[in-house]
Design a protein around this nucleic acid. Sequence first.
DNA 1: AAGGTTAATGTAATCGTTTACGTTATGAAT
DNA 2: ATTCATAACGTAAACGATTACATTAACCTT
Lengths: 332, 332
Amino acid sequence: MTKISDVAKLAGVSTATVSRILSNPSWGKPETRENVLAAVKELRYKPNALARQLRTQETHTVIVITPNLSNDLFHKIIHSIEQEAAAHGYHVLVADAEGQPSVEEYYLNAIQQRQVDGIISISASAARHLLEKIADHYPLVLVVQSYEECNIPSVKIDNRAASEAITKHLIRIGHRKIAHITSSSDLLLYQERLSGYEKALRDGGIPVDPDLIYRGKGSMDGGFEQMNALLASGKKFDAVTCAGDTIAIGAIAALKARGIRVPQECAVTGFDDIEIAPYFDPPLTTIRQPAEQMGQIAFLKLFSMIKKEKKYDSPTYLPYELVIRKSCGHLL
Amino acid sequence: MTKISDVAKLAGVSTATVSRILSNPSWGKPETRENVLAAVKELRYKPNALARQLRTQETHTVIVITPNLSNDLFHKIIHSIEQEAAAHGYHVLVADAEGQPSVEEYYLNAIQQRQVDGIISISASAARHLLEKIADHYPLVLVVQSYEECNIPSVKIDNRAASEAITKHLIRIGHRKIAHITSSSDLLLYQERLSGYEKALRDGGIPVDPDLIYRGKGSMDGGFEQMNALLASGKKFDAVTCAGDTIAIGAIAALKARGIRVPQECAVTGFDDIEIAPYFDPPLTTIRQPAEQMGQIAFLKLFSMIKKEKKYDSPTYLPYELVIRKSCGHLL
DNA sequence: AAGGTTAATGTAATCGTTTACGTTATGAAT
DNA sequence: ATTCATAACGTAAACGATTACATTAACCTT
């Protein structure tokens, strides 16, 4: 592998000159520039990133930690982080935390070992105090969810309000016995969605019935299983709000398997507006999160922290959108 | 940040001793070990990965290049690569090539700059000669697709045979006028699937009709659009094989939108067996690729190349599985 | 012509490890 | 007691870049 000293030798200059010409477009006299650049081209020189990073103490790389790779919303966000990062000359390392023994360890290792300049955590699942400790020492931004009254920079929608909105829509069009299927994970975002659901019920004068709230895996399998459990319970219900589109899809499949028509006999709503939402039968009524914006803003926040422009920041709330399709039944 | 010399000072030894004790469990006398390890703990020392990598000339990191992150099959593969890599003490860097101006450049940069020890390319889209040139110099493994008679190591299923099998199934249960919707990308894998479809038709004594072959985006949107085009053409058909489950989902949505019942009036098959396949209405008949195995074997191949055990290798063909669900209609 | 400013470049230290090579201590073998 | 092998450890040279500091050259200014 050719190194900078090879280039320097061929161009008849010192390594310092090569380095400067390569990193500062207005440096050196034209003749020298030409020589050096010609040598670079001839030898096909590529700077060794490790050496550079070791010396400059920055990697121009950020790590994105995601609970899994199979969530459509997550990779929309990841993709937009990558776009924005590239625009600033940064690389993105994607870490799939699924199946990782200790997410916390994962978080820290990369940055402590100086392999990345900052962390973006999508839907972080670590304990609050731990995240705060990390944020105290390193640039960290949370996306999709964050803790309340916590000064770790974050970007998200108001999950509670969104969930309330979609539930209120069901009430408005005449549903009363509304169930909720959610994930049993203890992510705050699910608690917030549950809480929005409850608020909508209370505001609509409908008592919250704990027997209509089901928790399980946050996947299609999970939705399928929980809906079967709900059906098996014998409880009556005419609508279900699900805390995610994948859950909703599993739930609808379970209803259909018993010959229950959606939305005529039971309305179902999702959350996230994943790719399949409009193509499913029936198309899902859901909440759309502004994935692109979330990723973009998350990177920009992180970037300004890396550049030491600011350390803390208030959470950014972005607008969500209630997307009404057929799975919730008739509008008024 | 504490460095190795801090540890050495506190433990009263040289940096060489610290380094050796940390990397070789049977080195040094017990007393020294204890001192050093105690110092490490006290100072919370974490080795600087960059410095280590610069010195050892290996990063223990491999890069996985994927055409996009939204394909369920791809992240199953990525996930299994990560699992296997972790078991060998390697990290995985995921590169989403979508929207990248030049995938080729991407391929090379990371490895030329010595940031990774090897490359796994999922469904590579680069030109053959380019891939061969890369493989000549660096460890490279292809997954999901590869070129014929090419000695770049690869892991995949026999796409042609699988496509032939699923098409033959349609013929066996009585379909004659079978269309094919595929991606307009020039990935070999789509050509192979098309070719398997054609072979099945010919073997069944059915002429291949170019007017029944449609190409578009390989997404749900694409399937929707192509099916609409097919319908608009006025051509008669009673079944459609799609080159991917997402295409099939879009296609079915388009059929339903016109009130055409699937599979009664038109059978549809997919490819890949993504998460939603069993939950869709109707559940998709499709080809399951052994994603876990593919990822695992891909990493192992790469690993042996990195360790210089072997350079070239014949492609590994793994068994696929024809998964028959309802979207193709009655079995005999 | 002397002094001063600036541009162009070189020298060598530095980032934080690992490791080849050298030295000393220890103990076994003769 | 001498020799020899081996274990334990230290010294210092890498790895390949960037950059503080020093130097020289060139060009003004008066």
